[in-house]
Simulated assay, not measured.
Amino acid sequence: MLYLIYGTDTKKARSKARGLLDSLISKKPDSVVLRLSSENINKGVLEEGIQGRGLFSEKYVVFLDTISDGENFDELVIDKAKEFALSENIFILLEAGLTKKIVSKFEKHVDKMLEFSLPKVKKEEFNIFSLTDAFGARDRKKLWVLLQKALRAGSSSEEIHGILFWQIKNILLVKGGGTPTSLGLNPFVLKKAQGFAQKFSDKEAHDTSKDLIHLYHRARRGEATM
Rank of each mutant, 00 (worst) to 15 (best):
K105C: 03
K82G: 00
F84P: 09
R220M: 10
H206A: 14
K210D: 12
A150F: 07
G222N: 09
K122C: 10
R220Y: 00
M226G: 08
S37E: 08
E88D: 15
L151I: 14
G154F: 04
P180Q: 09
S23W: 03
Q148V: 15
K191P: 01
S155G: 05
D202W: 02
K80F: 08
G44I: 01
W166S: 00
S31Q: 06
S26M: 12
A13S: 13
W144D: 14
V33M: 03
I90C: 09
A17P: 10
I90D: 05
D202R: 09
L146K: 13
G97P: 09
D111V: 15
I168T: 03
G136H: 11
D9L: 09
S157Y: 14
I92F: 09
I102P: 08
D111P: 02
L146T: 12
L146I: 12
E83H: 00
F91W: 11
I102S: 11
P29H: 11
H206P: 01
F63A: 04
V62L: 09
G70W: 06
K192G: 03
K142M: 06
E88A: 14
A150C: 05
K11E: 15
L131M: 10
S155L: 12
I5C: 00
D133H: 01
G195Q: 01
A137R: 14
L114Y: 07
R140D: 14
A193R: 10
R140I: 15
E39T: 06
F84G: 03
K141A: 13
D139S: 07
L143D: 05
G222R: 08
V110L: 12
Q167R: 07
I92C: 07
G162S: 05
K199Q: 14
A81C: 03
S31V: 08
G176A: 05
R140M: 13
G222Q: 10
S157F: 14
V103K: 11
T181A: 15
R220F: 12
K122D: 09
V45R: 06
K175L: 11
I160Y: 05
K108M: 01
R220E: 15
E83L: 13
A224E: 14
F126Y: 11
G7S: 01
D139C: 07
K101T: 15
